[in-house]
Design a protein around this nucleic acid. Structure first.
Lengths: 128, 128
DNA sequence: CGAGTATATTGACAAGCATCAATATATATG
DNA sequence: CATATATATTGATGCTTGTCAATATACTCG
């Protein structure tokens, strides 16, 4: 899926541009991937709205109350909740016939901190 | 593109579930949309890597130095830089034959603060 | 058990996106 | 002006994703 003509771009031509620059990788590739997945889960208007709703409540929220806030079909909301579940951004709990979702702040905190870290110049990103 | 059977979900059936819940919209729809666009710009491994690279440098970075870090063609990197430009996450500046990019921390800061705000229970999101 | 209800899952489809090859644009240099 | 180089743009292609309709699952209640 990626090309292999990398060596064609590492000639001395770009030595004219900048000194050879070795930028240390910020965190492992695995970390990058999981951050991308988390950000992608948030990068949808419906899901971000759901997350906002959950963030405003301390108590879990019933799926039917989430669904009623959108002009979208129930399977669509269920799909979005699954995406949020998959990246562990939400907790869920079945109570009888209903399912209750709540925000998993422990999963949100690292991403918020990560973006904060990008604001500081030259700040190393946790590589663990 | 959206269904219109919303009223079928607002019957008294869900009164059995939870008390009628009015969740105030967190910020305008426009704010939500622009946040989604910013998050989507970050939610790609190549672009997040670029942003990380820029965040570690105070000086702008030449496109050729960015391109050399990836096994991707030059047009692909150029495309990703355009996405970052479009949401104003980066500044760019032409110097002779080369183009230099730098992180626009002023555009990153609101999103970082927004995610921080989601961590606090019941915290109202800026609606301006 | 049977009927009803809330939620999840499956399958299909259209729109969006990441990528590449080819080309265009702009700048430097001889 | 002609050539070379760095970057951007265009167009095509395959993969991903958001959505819906239909169906399945799980739970409650009579």
């Amino acid at each position: 899926m990626q090309n292999n003509n990398n060596e064609s771009r590492t000639t001395e031509s770009e030595a004219d541009c900048c000194p050879v620059l070795t930028i240390r990788p910020a965190g492992s590739d695995l970390r990058l991937q999981s951050r991308v997945k988390l950000l992608a889960a948030l990068a949808d208007p419906t899901r971000l709205h759901i997350v906002e709703m959950l963030s405003q409540l301390q108590e879990p929220l019933c799926v039917c109350d989430i669904t009623s806030q959108f002009d979208l079909g129930q399977p669509t909301i269920s799909h979005h909740l699954k995406v949020l579940r998959d990246v562990k951004l939400v907790h869920w709990e079945k109570r009888g016939l209903w399912v209750y979702y709540s925000l998993n702040r422990a999963a949100l905190e690292p991403i918020a901190g990560y973006l904060d870290g990008l604001l500081a110049i030259g700040q190393a990103v946790s590589s663990v």
